[in-house]
Amino acid sequence: MTCPTWWRLNRAVRLLCASDAPLRTVAHRVGYRSEFTFGAAFKREYGVTRGACRRRVSQRP
Rank of each mutant, 00 (worst) to 15 (best):
M1F: 09
M1W: 08
M1C: 05
M1N: 11
T2P: 12
T2Q: 13
C3A: 14
C3R: 13
C3G: 11
P4C: 10
P4N: 12
T5D: 03
T5H: 01
T5F: 00
W6L: 12
W6N: 13
W6T: 13
W7Q: 13
R8N: 11
R8K: 15
L9F: 08
N10H: 13
R11I: 12
V13Y: 05
V13G: 06
V13E: 12
R14T: 15
R14W: 10
R14S: 10
R14D: 14
L15P: 01
L16N: 00
L16K: 00
C17V: 10
C17Q: 14
A18G: 15
A18M: 07
A18V: 03
S19I: 00
S19P: 01
S19E: 11
D20I: 06
A21H: 03
P22A: 12
L23S: 09
R24C: 04
R24D: 14
T25H: 02
T25N: 02
T25F: 00
T25V: 07
V26Q: 11
V26F: 04
V26T: 12
H28A: 08
H28Y: 02
R29M: 09
V30Q: 02
G31L: 02
G31A: 05
G31C: 04
G31P: 00
Y32K: 01
Y32F: 15
R33E: 09
S34W: 05
E35V: 10
E35A: 10
E35G: 05
F36W: 05
F36R: 12
F36G: 08
F36I: 06
T37K: 01
F38M: 03
F38A: 06
F38G: 05
G39F: 02
G39L: 01
G39K: 03
G39M: 02
A40C: 03
A40R: 07
A40E: 11
A41I: 03
A41N: 11
A41K: 07
A41V: 04
F42Y: 07
F42S: 06
K43I: 08
R44G: 03
E45L: 07
E45F: 02
Y46M: 04
Y46A: 01
G47M: 01
G47N: 01
V48S: 05
V48P: 03
V48L: 06
V48T: 11
T49W: 00
T49S: 14
R50L: 07
R50S: 15
G51I: 10
G51P: 02
G51S: 13
G51L: 07
G51F: 04
A52Q: 13
A52V: 15
A52M: 10
C53S: 09
C53Q: 12
C53P: 00
R55G: 04
R56I: 10
V57Y: 14
V57E: 12
S58T: 12
Q59A: 15
R60A: 14
R60G: 11
R60T: 10
P61V: 11
P61M: 08
